[in-house]
Design a binder for these strands. Structure first.
Length: 565
RNA sequence: GGCCCCGUCGUCUAGCCAGGUCUAGGACACCAGGUUUUCAUCCUGGUAACACGGGUUCGAAUCCCGUCGGGGUCACCA
């Protein structure tokens, strides 16, 4: 079946924001389907009633859309998705009747059976096994009475009393053929009679995933290696299940992806953000007081007492601001807020556990590519086996060079969109100087969230400029003629520049230098100090134009007055 | 602990499947120079790795075994 259409799927559970590891999985699934002219399915695995939320599901859809990872079949979002193949719905909570149909047949044929232990009883069984230094593995008792169990199930159904349905695990070893890892044999002794239907009537992950993948025609399953140990369950289920007409289920091609970790080797977790805040907020009594006021006493106490408890994102961000702390980026939303470009994020993520294995013309390895390239060249065969650590410096370097390579107009558009979402204040502060500001920012930032720093001098009042002592000494007082003298000399020339824009300003500076036989630094640095307070700023033309003629002259005059001597 | 996976520069990796061309290549980070009106860029150069021990072989980063190390998983979560 060389020409069988490829169908991949990404199936997140909507229990929070989309995690960066999930993005890579989605990206690979998407690229593989695209590159093979297949389809990419997005399915929401919301079978955990307690933890799932519609908001989270929606957030995940938006995150994927922002990244440029569109799905062919799945929930609709602004023209993405839909049910063209008629295989929906794509929320598992809406597919309960489907699972029940298969379950009823399994119950009839003895492939599945009801079980009545309570949670406490199971816990006791586990404890007992542990006491014997054995791994607990649920198995149907040898003297299990199927007729009686079925009768008890019916009674409980009628009475509304809880029970679960388990899979009767066939007593044979399972071989998982993994495209990345190779063939892996699993002993049947370690695979238990796992639950198919929970007491609340919802299917477990194992059951739903096998049914849905088959019904949705999924041919290739790419997922994280944390699922490797689940795979024998899924394969066993596939071997056991048939459609109503007797057609057996198929086993998709599996490819288990290596995991992504933090740079310190710890697992990347949503809790990392709480961890970072905890470190400073709980450092001493005064910081605790500040944090408690901000969070609210009750919630703060609970959060302090329980290390696994998470604060809502807005409170975490508020605390981060108060303690001037940079929160680690974990979710897509975090990276978006920090100002990474979607294609860069995807490019970097794709390099974690995969690489195209190609060279550039200069002999270096090809590692910068766009989404189209990824689709064209992504191959399961080139997925690595070992876990990797997430390197923010490298991501930032990629982001910086991508920003620098953009057309100025494109960058201004991207920056404006980012500001509208995260820093509307900058838009109003800059007003019609926005284009000038963007030009000054573009070559100097790694991420969009750093946009204020290079132009901070232009965002303060003329009187608020603080002339740095060291800078004044070095640029204004030293040398002959002194910077101060050159500045005073140049002041009126500058006043005559019109229009007061980068190019004419630069020309005026150059002409002045040539006329006086001075090096550029002799005037550039005094100007910088006078206008920005320090010796570091964007190009002179940009710097001065950004402050504006009246501001520049006011700052120079004040500098001449206050720094004389 | 049981089961399972993995192990090349600090990090991501190429090379491994089809052993020699590997005095192990690239990227990020770091260090040193250079260009530039400062910064940021940009350019040049440098430091830095086949986990260890046994085999197999004329020859092993590449094949086999063991040790050690790292990770995953052992739910009515996914």
């Amino acid at each position: 079946m060389p020409d069988a259409p490829v169908i991949t799927r990404f199936a997140p559970s909507p229990t929070g924001h989309l995690h960066i590891g999930g993005v890579r999985t989605a990206l690979f699934c998407w690229a593989f389907a695209r590159g093979h002219g297949g389809r990419f399915v997005l399915r929401i695995e919301d079978t955990d009633q307690k933890r799932s939320s519609e908001d989270a599901a929606r957030g995940i859809l938006e995150d994927l859309a922002w990244l440029g990872i569109g799905w062919d079949d799945g929930p609709e979002l602004g023209g993405i998705g839909g049910d063209a193949r008629g295989i929906g719905p794509y929320y598992q909570a809406q597919r309960l009747e489907i699972y029940q149909r298969f379950l009823d047949r399994m119950l009839e044929t003895g492939l599945a059976y009801p079980a009545f232990e309570t949670g406490d009883e199971l816990a006791a069984m586990r404890a007992a096994a542990q006491g014997r230094k054995e791994t607990f593995c649920y198995r149907r008792r040898a003297d299990y009475d199927r007729g009686a169990a079925l009768a008890e199930m019916r009674r409980r159904e009628a009475a509304g009393e809880p029970f679960v349905v388990r899979f009767r695990m066939p007593g044979e070893p399972v071989r998982v053929a993994d495209t990345v890892l190779g063939d892996i044999d699993f002993d049947e002794q370690h695979t238990d009679d796992f639950v198919l239907r929970k007491a609340d009537g919802y299917p477990t992950y194992h059951f739903a995933v096998v049914i849905d993948d088959e019904l949705m025609g999924v041919t290739h399953v790419l997922r994280g290696q944390e699922h490797l140990n689940n795979t024998p369950r899924h394969v066993a289920l596939q071997h056991a299940l048939t459609h109503e007409d007797g057609t057996p289920f198929r086993t998709p091609v599996y490819a288990h992806l290596p995991l992504i970790f933090n740079s310190d080797g710890s697992k990347m977790s949503k809790r990392d953000k709480d961890k970072a805040v905890r470190r400073v907020a709980l450092a001493d009594d005064s910081s605790k007081g500040v944090a408690a006021d901000l969070v609210g006493r009750g919630e703060f106490d609970a959060w302090q007492a329980d290390k696994t408890r998470q604060l809502p994102p807005e409170k975490l961000h508020a605390l981060a601001v108060v303690f001037s702390l940079e929160l680690p980026e974990i979710d897509v939303e975090d990276f978006r807020r920090s100002g990474y470009l979607p294609p860069v994020l995807c490019n970097y993520l794709a390099l974690l556990g995969w690489n195209p294995g190609m060279k550039n013309a200069d002999g270096t390895d090809l590692d910068r590519f766009d989404m189209a390239f990824l689709c064209e060249h992504f191959a399961i065969e080139r997925i690595g086996k070992s876990n990797s650590k997430f390197d923010r410096d490298k991501l930032a370097a990629f982001n910086q060079s991508a920003i620098a390579a953009m057309a100025p107009g494109d960058f201004a558009g991207v920056l404006r969109a980012w500001c509208e979402r995260y820093d509307a204040g900058l838009l109003t502060e800059l007003g019609d100087r926005f284009g000038l500001g963007a030009a000054a920012i573009q070559p100097r930032v790694k991420t969009l969230s750093q946009c204020r720093e290079p132009i901070a001098f232009a965002l303060i009042a003329d009187e608020a400029v603080v002339f740095d002592e060291q800078a004044v000494k070095k640029a204004l007082h030293k040398g002959e003629p002194s910077g101060l003298a050159v500045l005073a000399d140049f002041r009126d020339t500058l006043a005559g520049v019109d229009p007061f824009e980068p190019a004419p300003i630069e020309e005026a500076v150059k002409a002045f230098c040539e006329g006086r036989g001075l090096g550029m630094g002799k005037i550039a640095q005094p100007l910088r100090v006078a206008v920005t307070g320090g010796t570091v700023s964007p190009g002179l033309g940009d710097t001065l134009a950004l402050v504006g003629k009246s501001g520049v002259l006011a700052r120079i005059d004040r500098c001449l007055r206050e720094c004389a001597g």
